[in-house]
Each structure stands twice: as C-alpha cells, then as structure tokens.
Design a protein around this nucleic acid. Structure first.
Lengths: 345, 345
DNA sequence: ACAGTTAATTGGAACGTTCCAAATATGTCA
DNA sequence: TGACATATTTGGAACGTTCCAATTAACTGT
C-alpha cells in the first residue's frame, strides 16, 4: 500500500503491454487502440499510480511550474495579485509555486534559487526592497522568462508590469482640487522606492498644474501600513496650518489615516478628505467607503501571468514594459457628492 | 549562454574529475580533498551550473518540498497562516509550495494531485468547504504526511490542528455577560461548518451557564466576510427587541457588523458591543480596536508545520489531533472599561 | 621496500519518464 | 495470395542525479 511507488513499468507489466504504450496512454495519444487504453487506464486507477513529473521533466526538460514570489503576502494587495496569477496559470495547465520573501533580499535569493533548482518554467516577481538587477540576471540568462511586477528593477533585462502610479496620483489630486481643496497632503510610503516617488511626482505635478505652491511639510512619509498611516495622521495634527485632504500612499495607509483622524475626532469624508491607492477589497465595504485609485491587483496578476505565458510559449525572453492603466474610484471618504468614475489613459 | 543546461558531468569534464566527485562536492561530503573541492566549486560558479533537484529526487525519492493549500488566500488569516508555515519550513531546509483552492473542492483536488505528481514530502491543508475524507486518503495511504488545519475532516486518517473554537466563543460570551449584557447575538458564518457549529455551541453553553434563555433568532448566519457581517447587522435592525451585543463568527464579519451599525448611527463599542474571532492584524489598529478571540494564525501555521516536519522525519503518518488554545483580547469594541487579557486553557 | 591503513576517487547501475526508429499487426486492393 | 498502406506496439537510449562497491593514491610504521 505504501513503500515502493508504482511506476509506469508496473502498470505495463500488469497490463501485458510495454512501458511505451502506457506512456502513450498517459499523454492521451491518439496512436493507441481504444481497448488497450481502457485496460491501461483501469490499471492506473487500481494500482494507485501517480505520475512522476520529476522524471518526465528530466527527459523533456520543460516543466509546468511557474514561480511567483511576493514581498509581502500579508498585504492583501499581493495576496490578490497571486490569486490573479493563479487563475491564468491554472487554466494554462501550469501550477503555481508561491513563495514570499518578507521584504528580505536574502530570503528572496534563497527562494528564487530553490525555484530554479526545481525547474520552474517562468517567474513572476514582486521584488523585495533593495533587490538588484543581478538577482534576476542568472534566470534571464539561462532563458527563463521573468516578469517583474509592481516595483521596477532598473537595469534588469526582463519584462515589467507596473501600474500607472504617476497618472493615478495626478488624477486623484486633481479630483481633490476640483472639490475645492487647496491644502493637500501626501501621506505614507518610503521615499526610496520608485513607486513612492512616482506617486509623489504625480501629486506634485497636479498641484503645480493648478498653480498651488508645494508645501514640503505636506509630504509625510511613514511605513506603508495601517499603523504607518495612523502615525502620519497624528504627526499632521501638530501642523499650524493643517491640510484638509490627503492622498495616501496606499489603501492600508489610508485606513490608518482614517483611524488617526477619528482618534482626533475628525470624521474622514466630512472634516477631511482621504484618498487611497490600490483599491483592495475592503475599500468598498469600509465606513466610509474609501475613494481610491483602483489598481485591480487581480487583473494585474492576470496580465502578468499572460505576459509570462506568452514568453514561455514563444520560447524567448523579451524585455517589454507595460504600464497598466488605473482609475479613480470615487466613494465616500473624499466627501464627493456623487458617485462617479474617471478613466485614465 | 542558454540552451543546454550544464550538468554535473560538464563540471566533471572541465575539472578533470569524475561526476561522482562533483556529486560529493555538491553534498558537502568530507570525503573529498580540499583542493579538489575548491577547483570544482569554482567551476560550478563559472559555468553557471544549477542543481537539478528533479533528477536527484528521482534517485533518492524524497523531496524537500512541502505543499500547503488554503481555501482563501485573500483572507489575511490564511495569508498569515501560510507565512507561519513558511517560517519553519524554510528553516528546516524545505521549500513551500503554496496553492489556493478558492473554496472549490474541484480546484483543490487538482492542486493536490499536481503537488503529488511533483513529489511533495508532506501537505498542510486548510480544506475547502465540502472536502471529503476521501480527498486526502490517497496521500495518507501512500505514506505522505498530511496535517489538516483550521477546519476538521472527520474520518480522515490524518493529523489535525484546530483552534479551541468552543472555548474561545464561550469565554467571549462570558465576558459580555460579565459586562452586563443579556441580549447577545451570534452573527455570521455558515451553519454547515464544524468551526461555526463549535463556536455557536460555545456561545449557547455560556448563555445557558448564566441562566439566560436562548433566543433562536439571535443566531444570524451570513457569509463569513465583511459584506456578510454588514448584511447580518442590517437584518438585526428589524428585530423588535434588539440584542445589545454580538459575538461574530470572525473578525471580517465583526468589521462588517461595525459598518452596518454605523450606517444605522450606532457606534460600535458605545451603543453596542462587538467581539470578533481570529485577531487578524487589522483588529488592533481599527477604530474602535476590535475585542476578539485571538487565534494567532502565524503561530498556528508554525505549529502545523512543526507537526508535519515531525512526521516527515519520523517517516510515519500519525493521526494526532491538537487543539491550540486561544485567548480573549479585550479592546475597545466591546465597551469594556479597562484593557485586560484573559487566558484560556 | 613492504604490508597495512586511511584518504580520495571512480565507474556503472539505478530512478521513472519520453522519444525515436523500428517492428509487428491489421486492413485493403487487385 | 501478395504487396502495400495504415494502425499499433515496442525496445532501447537518453535525461541528471545518487549510491555502492571497487579501485587507486597517499601515508604509516617497521
């Protein structure tokens, strides 16, 4: 019942055919006679045979595993991204091999190495902070397609899928300006990431466009988490001239900012307008519902996976950079009167 | 640079030794001479050799992969569980192969099959609703250890790690009773899961213990999500005699209930006491901070992984059932005056 | 210099597949 | 019936490792 794995030749022996025939059956080849197929299939079931994909890969050296490593599984943005990837990967007959680096480059190196050893056909990577182009170079060099998502990796010869951070931030700030706000803050996120600097740039340009002078203090960095948002909001309370609205680095920060406002008896959406970034699932159901720049992580995962699949099938690693468009979803937290949606290029 | 994978024999040829020696080097055997080791190691780097674990497994038929499949990655409880598992799995030199079933038994069957084909050394499973014992039987039969977590799987010959749902619910309700509440509801969750029925049982017994008659209407089932919580709260609003407090199926539901209360101008923690279950990260930072039964998903993941590792190393599949203890974390949402913690067995 | 150890190294035979060329069976036509 | 085409089936040689038994090299002490 346990012990020795039953193999293709065990089946062959039992069915009185050759192992080649069994192999043919396994692959659903049309070459094999209907009767033999039935007999073999029955035996496969009865003997509890399980296909050894490792052995198969050994011979044909192309596996059906795609790897995905994310920097923070705990953040539901990435969890959803992974789910999106999983959808297309599964339906293409591949299986997903998900790992998380916990924002550590070392760990990331480890898991990538391990994935390589296990023969992945391609990799989707949301890099940990501080990842170097050299971390993915060996992959790309040995012809394994890599798609980098969410954060970019300058210098790496790989495809990249980013969201339109600049445009999204810009349109969010424009919206706030249209609503009459003049003192607008940017809250949360670390200054040293490309994602953050792109969003801040969009924020600045929107202000400039409207002829509003930039107040340097209004860019308040913090950890990109709910807790970070709360502390950022607390810090803002000490300003002589407080902002009346904020664009937040992401939704987690935005929720934290709401928490911080409430602790100071300010109701988000009434006394202060809050806009997030990402549109995680909770954004819709929170109270007040969060106005946010929708990135659709699941869709992004799907696109990334499609891009990867294309390259795997084409058998070549391209270096293509896609920017996915992004749209502002207006809900209650910005105090806008009506529910509307603004499309972006 | 790409094309043919360089193998152990390529290295051997280049170094002027036999493939056996290279293999020895790879395994860090003390049998090999220091000078040869160096030469070989250098070549391994230079030629960009990557170890083929598939081939190795083929020979020694014990892999270093452990599989984990969760029913909903999007729920941060499970994401954290996975992170916990990952921690111990990594440090044991194994790698994790995470998949999510999206609460579909079919998908779950697929991914489990796929993992089997890829030769996992063990499996951690948080089963999708409706999973049968027969779904894991073949695994267990072929000697692959399986640890079922979170939900139990009656009849399956596998180890199980559950949290003390009964005790946790009981102590939460006791707390509400001590606070003076008499009309207490149980909100959220589907009636047909063991987890739900255990919690409801704890809720009932606590009421009974206090001599409070059970009002059947006060058990309001709904989807175990934020949205589900909101609708449950809305439904409650139509009661003639409304509850003054609720134990919720999980934290997501609890947040939803808070949303629903607010839409009806009731402030959670003031006009109505809310207790959740799970203690997800957001529970601490939410406003009001959520009183909840802390399950520590990450710790649970770690314990599950340890249990699995033990079985893998022992080379036998036990059938052990562990119940992890659980503690009530009192925060603001139940309206308790002081911040305190109650330990449970 | 020789036997006796100990230290390093090494061929092959597995492991469970796939793939190819070749063999065999089956059918068709005149 | 013989010759050909077509439908099935089949041995073996890979694939990249590990493991074992066996070989060779390098030291001992006398």
């Amino acid at each position: 019942m346990s012990k020795a794995r039953t193999s293709i030749v065990d089946i062959a022996r039992a069915a009185g055919v050759s192992k080649s025939t069994v192999s043919l059956v396994l692959q659903g080849s049309p070459l094999v006679n209907e009767k033999t197929r039935e007999k073999v299939s029955a035996l496969i079931n009865d003997l509890g045979y399980v296909y050894n994909r490792g052995a198969a890969n050994l011979r044909q050296s192309k596996s059906k595993i795609i790897g995905i490593v994310v920097n923070d599984l705990t953040n539901s943005f990435f969890a959803e991204l992974a789910v999106g990837v999983d959808m297309v990967v599964q339906s293409a007959g591949y299986v997903q091999f998900l790992a998380h680096s916990g924002e550590s480059v070392d760990r990331q190196r480890q898991v990538i190495a391990s994935m390589r050893e296990n023969g992945i056909a391609g990799l989707i990577l949301s890099p940990a902070r501080g990842t170097e182009a050299s971390d993915v170079k060996p992959l790309a060099d040995s012809g394994i397609p890599v798609v980098v998502v969410v954060r970019n990796l300058p210098g790496a010869k790989v495809s990249t899928l980013l969201s339109d951070n600049y445009g999204g931030a810009k349109s969010a700030v424009r919206h706030l300006i249209n609503l009459g706000h003049r003192r607008i803050a940017f809250m949360g996120g670390f200054a040293d990431t490309a994602v953050s600097s792109d969003r801040v740039r969009g924020y600045r340009d929107a202000l400039m466009e409207a002829g509003i002078a930039l107040n340097q203090n209004f860019v308040i960095h913090s950890a990109p988490s709910r807790a970070g948002g709360a502390t950022a909001a607390e810090r803002m309370m000490f300003f002589d001239e407080r902002p009346t609205a904020a664009l937040c680095f992401n939704d987690a920060v935005a929720f934290g900012v709401c928490d911080g406002l409430r602790s100071n008896d300010i109701e988000p959406g009434k006394g202060f307008a809050v806009i997030g970034f990402d549109d995680v699932i909770e954004a819709k159901t929170a109270v007040p519902a969060l106005t946010t720049v929708s990135v659709d992580p699941q869709g992004m995962g799907q696109r990334a996976a499609q891009l990867l699949m294309k390259q795997i099938n084409a058998g070549q690693v391209d270096q293509e950079t896609l920017v996915t468009s992004v749209r502002l979803v207006v809900r209650q937290s910005c105090g806008a009167p009506v529910r509307q949606t603004e499309e972006l290029a």
